Simulated scan of single mutants.
Amino acid sequence: MTNGHHVVVLGAGYTGMFSAIRLAHRTRRAGVKITLVNPSSRFVERLRMHQIAAGQELAHHRISDLLAGTGVTFVQGAATAIDPEARRITVDGATPLGYDTLVYALGSSTDTGNVPGAEAHAFTLNSPEIAGRFAARIAEVAQAGGALTVCGGGLTGIEAAAELAEAHPGLNVTLISTEEPGAMMGAKARAYLHRVLDRLGITLETGARVTEVLPDAVELADGRIIRSDACLWTAGVKVSPLAADAKIATDDRGLILTDATLRSVSHPEIHAVGDAAAVRMGYGQLHGSCQSGLPTAQYTADTIARLLHGKTVRPFRFGYFHQPVSLGRRDAVIQFTRADFTPVGMRLTGRSAVAYKEFVSGSPLMTYRFSKRMNVTTLVSKGGRATRKPAAS
């Protein structure tokens, strides 16, 4: 019986927002109550944080506006504790919120706790407010012809370094990475990426590990000191300790361990999506990204709706199909992939890649709007043979 069933969604990022809106549409005649909990009233486009860091003004999307017409209740506040036995959440340390089904969508953030000085002296792209303060600092540094270090050569670090170098031609940008930037791409896409970074005047420190962030420099493992009037930290991620603290089964990083239907292996009334979930396919564990996160949200909304109506649920299947990377506002590279994220020969570069990347970045908001009226299917591959194999334990 679904009437009065209460679903609470923790986190209003890309996955939490999609889970709530799609589930509301799927259960609109079933008497299901849905509550979305998030500390901020603003919906954050994490895919565009590097644009804010470069001083660009982005649209301000209010969560209440995105939920308008769905029937979803928005509670602004931070979840501070979960009691899975009582099925109760504590919000802002005081307000209790009961649930019948919980969607855990708290995502991840950049981890500055593993390297001395990173938390004190480095900026992150964890929120629009932090990115905005970083943008103000970078404007000062660039005007003085100063130096920026971007620590971490993953996609976030690459996009941020390119965006900042393009926006501030007088800025000396150094990208520091333990691996070659673009290592996951094919040779031709990677070569294009490096040509663009070189054209933008970005210095690469490849195979380098930062051991300490100082107020005006970063120290590398080989003893070298690199000048840094501002440091952007993009290396490593962490998740909320909320699940582990509640004795919900997690891996050693704090991600909720899930079964084949993305339900907690210890508490099946809890569904985990996006970066907060340890999701395994036959080819390995999904890494945190919007590309894999939105399909987990779509699947979970559909799964909850099916379970409430007594229907069977098939296992979750997902395969990657691209690696989109913006390189400033006027260039980009898109590497297409197999289901397991390994590259294939097809790629896009230049203007066509810019248009493709912009579509990808803007697609979540379009999906939310249309999902209020219909069951919108995200751009997702089930991965073919690669996901038919059972996940390794």
Rank of each mutant, 00 (worst) to 15 (best):
I256Y: 01
L220N: 06
S41H: 10
T300D: 01
P343N: 10
L379S: 12
R209C: 12
E163G: 07
Q291D: 00
A278C: 08
P215C: 07
K188Q: 15
T296L: 02
F316G: 02
K247N: 13
E57W: 05
D259V: 01
G154R: 08
N38K: 06
M346D: 15
G132R: 11
A86Y: 03
C151R: 11
H267M: 04
A162N: 06
D275R: 02
G274L: 00
V265N: 01
R29L: 09
T296R: 03
T178I: 14
P128Q: 08
S266H: 10
C290S: 09
D275T: 03
L365Q: 07
G384D: 12
K389N: 05
S177N: 13
A183N: 14
H60Q: 09
A86T: 09
G288D: 08
L47Q: 06
I176L: 15
T234Q: 07
K357I: 00
I176N: 05
A386G: 01
R330E: 14
T35W: 06
T206L: 02
G293C: 05
L220W: 06
I304L: 03
E140M: 09
A355C: 11
A12T: 06
R26S: 11
I158L: 12
D259A: 01
V344Y: 07
V376L: 13
H50N: 13
L232V: 05
R48W: 02
A142Y: 03
A183H: 15
V380F: 08
I130T: 13
G154E: 10
A78N: 04
I82K: 03
E212S: 08
V218I: 15
L148F: 04
Y14L: 14
S41W: 06
G71I: 02
G16Y: 09
A260E: 13
V265F: 02
Y283M: 04
K382S: 13
L232C: 03
A59G: 11
L242I: 10
G182L: 04
V32F: 01
S19V: 01
L348V: 09
M346P: 08
M366K: 12
E205Q: 15
V196P: 00
N375Y: 11
A161N: 04
G145V: 03
E140K: 12
K382N: 14
G274P: 00
G186F: 10
A244H: 11
S109R: 14
Q143H: 13
G132V: 06
N114A: 14
G132P: 04
P181F: 07
G328R: 05
G254V: 02
S363W: 12
F359E: 13
T234F: 12
Y283R: 05
G310K: 08
S381M: 13
R330P: 01
C290M: 09
F370I: 10
V344I: 15
A136Q: 14
R46H: 12
D252P: 00
A355W: 12
A59Q: 08
A165W: 05
M366S: 11
S127E: 07
V376F: 12
V239R: 12
R329Q: 08
A244K: 14
T234E: 09
V279Q: 07
G207F: 05
Q143C: 02
S363C: 08
T90R: 10
G145D: 01
P116Q: 07
L200G: 06
T101L: 04
D100W: 00
F336E: 10
A277W: 00
I334F: 07
R209F: 12
S363N: 13
E179T: 14
G4L: 11
Y283I: 00
